[in-house]
Design a protein around this nucleic acid. Structure first.
Length: 904
RNA sequence: GCCGGGAUGGCGGAAUCGGUAGACGCAGCGGACUCAAAAUCCGCCGCUGGAAACAGUGUGGGGGUUCGACUCCCCCUCCCGGCACCA
């Protein structure tokens, strides 16, 4: 930086080609960057660093438009900051473990490893052809042992600290394939391949205690001003800290032996706490509520099907046992749980209201979640919408205990105000009558506490992170099962536990369970023959720390080293909004664990976050009566129209038979609705593809794919090329513009600098669609400028601004033209352009003239005119006189630089 | 269902703090060039009425605040993302 860029460029290249030939100039520019190692990032303590990271792709086969959008945004940011003088790092890698590789293996009998590595090779070549400023020397793939070794190593550290532990978890079980299904593989409650009704099954799993960090994960959202508000809101709601009251309904069962039922493990942290049935919990049904103020309105309680009380009641009630069994069918997905028909059955057991002693019946409800809170809820149908529907369905009583002045309570139809915490006051609640939400909760909690039946409690919606997957293509969990010693961690010096890469899964369970060479091992403790754990880790583990590994990618001896101190945290992270919660939350958690282990010294991994909107496309599918659903790419599908031109359906081109429409959704491998950018790149070149992606819409907005408009982007680049070619000789010979210009050229120059000013503002806002517009406007202005004496100098200044402004978006053509026009050797080293104040100044401004807020004309006033002068000029204007009709104006509003509004 | 976001011409979108709605493109229409086509260039282009000047109307729907609302407030509809085993 620092040296003068605008100056004669010595070498006289051969005459410039007339026609824009993107393939040639893109290859040449990419070769130039490669031969100069232009994007190799080297630690340099003397320069400010800028770590720009895009979420790494899953190697699904080909890039899709979502990738092109994501990586172009990242590349624009990278190149912009490079020209702003930062030492920039933009790495790339592969989120290489996951389900699609196993699906491909089943379909084509190819080992997931081979499929994955082939895909990586192809997609890497695609990324290279798009000209991204990536430091490929830091490339990583999470399926490589040298990477996942450190997943295993950190898992063992967590195990030592009690942050990793075992407990049972519920999974989707396909009874025909005898295998665990991912949520994605459950369609309408049935297995995707077999069509069998899915069952819930409890199996042992490993968990990471993310809830131990809940408080910090919530609090430190405030320390992330560079994150979108909506993402922080979503995370805060997901963590879900709620203040409420945990209390118990006492009961006595006529059962033999004075049965003690343990309180089920609460949603928090480690297992085992509270198990064994503490004395005080004897015969107590514990619930949690955020609405203790409605406690006098409880008319029944509902427990989950897995609740001990349900099991106890089902013991001698076959109908109830059948219902509990029925609740075990269907998927474990929360969305399904929330939308399914709410069903229940009475247990025949009654509990006592803790304050009134009233008998309260206990029901089993299929909508009560065992994993959240206590697995039991108090039901207040008068003031909870879901409870009211349930009560109406089963004829349970409804009581009003909250009133809002001016509102009439209904026990039949739900009204929003019935759950109002702000305006509500207690009624029909004895001593609590007249209290508001806060006071009522305090008073009731105090009374419950005095009786030893409860107290205020903080509860989290966040659950611990279950990382066990009963799948082959993932990172092995480094544990060994020994008959004598139990579960034993693999010693550090035996890491990594390497996944064999030649398995071909067939859809019926984990092939590792049939691999003797993987399974058989010696117990690290006693040396006896033992069996390796076959569960692998959730792929979110892989992506929870890869951003740190890029800084130490070549270090075989440590997870991370001192170079993370220079590069981390990530200055700008870019990725799809679909990752707003899980991936980003897990990464934040993992970072805090690494910090507490002394591995890194930052609290948050991503200083600034840009959440890219999804690229959507239509979804087409066929679902045979039995068997597996298949999706068809929109490119293979032809729409059908009726006489009036309305779309009535679509058929598959290959066989002419109809396909069903699945609406519109994210481009994805599983829905087969991705658009391969390859054809676009081959036909128009990378610059057009990049320009069009940026021009199509602002980055954070959802984008419905359509390639109409690509032609316009290509036309613009052709026009830019033609203009530069035509102006080349004049520009190379032209002097610099004088600081002060007059006449028509001054207006053109002002236009260019105004657009530059706007574009620089838009760069700050990541609004690249209007940056692209600004570049188009500049070219329009230059083309239309009068060709007088100062024109070559103006063209020179204008092009030098335009090329630099545009170079982050279309780097190849700008690289080439920068050299052709003699501005310098490498536009990468040019300083970022800033608008000249002198070029922006003007003597006179035009103000809009409104009458009663309606546009009626315009007036011209001196730029420095005072409000009084403007008002006088406006009132004197002919248009104003016409509407005033001799009357005085009631009011005149002057907005300097903008408008005058006369109210008559 | 719950949480988050969105809706502006035929289409993608612009409008920075409440101040000219529709910038910049696409498509379309008309014209120039051409034997013709492609490419390129010039002009028109929200809707209604009007020959025009111009007037009315218009930012998903309904209401409100304001001199003035795409923008702020209340209610509603539809679409998209997430919902813990897709990544």
């Amino acid at each position: 930086m620092g040296r003068s860029i605008i100056g004669p460029f010595q070498i006289q290249p051969r005459p410039m080609q007339e026609k824009y030939a993107p393939a040639e100039i893109e290859r040449a520019a990419q070769q130039h960057w490669e031969s100069t190692a232009a994007f190799r990032a080297v630690e340099d303590a003397t320069r400010p660093k800028y770590y720009c990271l895009s979420m790494f792709p899953y190697p699904s086969g080909k890039l899709h438009m979502g990738h092109v959008r994501n990586y172009t945004i990242g590349d624009v940011l990278t190149r912009y900051h490079r020209m702003r003088g930062f030492n920039v790092l933009q790495p790339m890698g592969w989120d290489a473990f996951g389900l699609p590789a196993e699906n491909a293996a089943m379909a084509n009998a190819v080992p997931p490893a081979q499929w994955t590595y082939d895909n990586i090779a192809y997609m890497k070549q695609q990324l290279r052809s798009l000209g991204f400023a990536i430091d490929w020397t830091r490339e990583l793939a999470t399926c490589r042992p040298e990477y996942y070794k450190w997943n295993q190593w950190l898992f063992l550290r967590m195990l030592e600290k009690g942050l990793a532990y075992q407990k049972t978890g519920v999974v989707n079980w396909d009874p025909v394939d005898q295998t665990v299904l991912a949520n994605e593989q459950v369609i309408d409650g049935r297995g995707w391949r077999t069509g069998a009704v899915v069952e819930k099954r409890e199996i042992p799993m490993y968990y990471l205690a993310i809830t131990q960090y809940a408080e910090e994960l919530l609090a430190s959202l405030d320390a992330l001003p560079g994150w979108p508000e909506r993402v922080k809101t979503m995370q805060a709601n997901w963590i879900g800290k709620s203040y409420g009251v945990r209390f118990a309904f006492p009961y006595e069962l006529p059962a033999p032996g004075g049965t003690t039922l343990p309180s089920p493990a609460s949603g928090r942290g480690t297992e085992g706490e509270g198990s064994g049935g503490q004395e005080t919990e004897k015969g107590l049904l514990w619930v949690f509520t955020t609405r203790a103020d409605t406690i006098m309105g409880v008319t029944f309680c509902a427990v989950a099907a897995e609740h001990p009380l349900a099991a106890r009641a089902a013991r001698d009630n076959p109908a109830l046992a059948a219902f509990v069994e029925e609740c075990k069918h269907g998927s474990v997905m929360e969305a399904d749980m929330a939308t399914m028909e709410k069903k229940g059955m009475p247990t025949g057991i009654c509990v006592s209201h803790p304050l009134t002693g009233e008998r309260i019946p206990v029901w089993v409800g299929n909508y009560v979640l065992m994993g959240y809170g206590e697995g039991a809820v108090m039901a207040v149908p008068g003031h909870d919408e879901r409870d009211l529907h349930f009560a109406r369905k089963y004829g349970l009583p409804v009581k009003q205990v909250i009133e809002v002045p001016g509102k009439t309570f209904s026990a039949e139809a739900w009204q929003e105000w019935q759950a109002d915490k702000e305006a509500g006051r207690c009624v029909n609640s004895g001593k609590y009558d007249g209290l508001g939400y806060r006071q009522a909760v305090d008073a009731i909690a105090a009374d419950l506490k005095a009786k030893g039946l409860g107290d205020k409690q903080v509860i989290w919606r966040l659950r611990d992170w279950g990382i066990s997957r009963q799948r082959y293509w993932g990172c092995p969990i480094p544990l060994i099962h020994c008959e004598k010693c139990g579960t034993v961690p693999v010693p550090d010096e035996q890491l990594p536990v390497v996944l064999p890469e030649d398995c071909v899964p067939d859809g019926s369970g984990n092939p590792l369970a049939r691999r003797a060479d993987f399974l058989d091992c010696a117990c690290p403790k006693c040396g006896a023959r033992a069996r390796r754990e076959t569960d692998t880790m959730d792929t979110f583990v892989d992506s929870s720390w890869y951003y740190s590994r890029y800084a130490s990618a070549d270090n075989a001896g440590a997870m991370v080293d001192e170079r993370v101190k220079y590069w981390l945290p990530v200055d700008q992270y870019i990725g799809g909004i679909e990752h707003a919660i899980l991936h980003l939350l897990y990464s934040r958690f993992w970072t805090k664990v690494m910090r507490d282990l002394g591995l890194v010294s930052f609290d948050e991994p991503f200083s600034r976050l840009l959440t890219q909107g999804m690229v959507l496309n239509e979804i087409f599918f066929r679902k045979p009566a039995s068997g597996r659903i298949s999706y068809f790419n929109p490119a293979e599908v032809e729409p059908k129209f009726d006489d009036k031109g309305n779309r009535i359906g679509a058929v598959l081109r290959a066989d002419g038979a109809p396909v069903e429409s699945g609406g519109i959704g994210t481009m994805s491998k599983s829905k087969n609705n991705g658009v391969d950018p390859q054809a676009l790149i081959e036909q128009y070149g990378a610059d057009t593809a990049r320009f069009f992606m940026m021009f199509a819409s602002p980055p954070e907005q959802t984008l419905e794919w359509s390639d109409s408009g690509v032609d316009g982007s290509y036309r613009f680049l052709k026009r830019l090329w033609a203009f530069a070619a035509g102006a080349r000789e004049a520009v190379r010979a032209a002097p610099a513009l004088p600081a002060r210009l007059d006449g028509a050229l001054a207006a053109v120059r002002r236009d260019i600098h105004l657009n530059l000013k706007q574009a620089n503002y838009d760069f700050q806002k990541f609004q690249y669609n209007t940056v692209a517009s600004a570049a188009m406007k500049m070219l329009n202005a230059l083309e239309r400028a009068p060709k007088d004496a100062d024109y070559p100098a103006l063209a020179r200044e204008g092009l030098s601004i335009l090329l630099r402004l545009l170079s982050p978006i279309t780097p190849h053509i700008c690289h080439h033209l920068w050299r052709e026009l003699g501005f310098g050797e490498d536009i990468l080293h040019a300083p970022w352009p800033e608008p000249l104040e002198a070029a922006l100044a003007q003597d006179e401004v035009e103000l809009v003239l409104q009458v009663n807020g309606k546009l009626r004309g315009a007036i011209r006033v001196p730029a420095a005119a005072a409000k009084e002068q403007i008002e006088a000029a406006a009132l004197a204007a002919e248009t104003a006189q016409k509407y005033l009709e001799g009357r005085p104006a009631k009011k005149v509003v002057v907005v300097p630089g903008r408008l005058v509004n006369i109210v008559v």
